[in-house]
């Protein structure tokens, strides 16, 4: 036996299209259900009312999408893509810069050490040479005794 009241509820709840009713709510075989609905006047009236509601609800006009929207999105994507690229490039440069800086610091420290070492060596050598020159002038050579008669007299005395 078909529950008329329940069918009435079903039409109001889920619309005139019985195929769109949830599986759990289907009480009869589709074909039997449809024939029963068309035979019963009360249900047929409810059905036509719901069909009208469905038709009214279909009156929602969708405007055309703006032609520039797709272009705008593409531009945004391109901008984002180049930003991402620049970001990755910057990271790479950052890495390179870091390596380059490290190398520079290392070379500088080595150079400084070598320069300081050679400079101190130079200072040491030149100091020695100057000192050597100074003391060399005051020293008496053997030949001096023969050249200077006064010195010869001292030696003889």
């Amino acid at each position: 036996m078909v529950d008329k009241k329940k069918l009435h509820c079903m039409i109001e709840n889920f619309g005139a299209d019985t195929k769109k009713w949830p599986d759990s709510s289907k009480m009869l075989h589709q074909h039997m259900q449809d024939s029963y609905l068309s035979q019963d006047q009360e249900l047929a009236a409810t059905l036509s009312k719901e069909k009208k509601l469905d038709a009214v609800l279909r009156h929602v006009y969708v405007p055309a999408i703006s032609a520039s929207l797709a272009q705008q999105i593409c531009q945004q994507i391109r901008a984002e893509h180049s930003k991402q690229k620049a970001g990755s490039l910057f990271k790479f440069q950052e890495y390179q810069l870091d390596t380059w800086n490290k190398l520079k610091i290392w070379v500088k420290s080595r150079l400084r050490a070598y320069v300081l070492m050679s400079a101190s060596l130079m200072v040491f050598i030149s100091g020695g040479w100057v000192l050597g020159q100074h003391y060399q002038q005051t020293d008496l050579e053997v030949g001096d005794f023969y050249a200077d008669p006064a010195l010869i007299m001292i030696v003889e005395d």
């Binding site: 109001e12 709840n13 889920f14 619309g15 509601l53 009214v56 609800l57």
Partner: peptide, 11 residues
Amino acid sequence: IRARQSLRLRL
């Protein structure tokens, strides 16, 4: 069900 009831009432 609730949406349909509300729409039926308003229209």
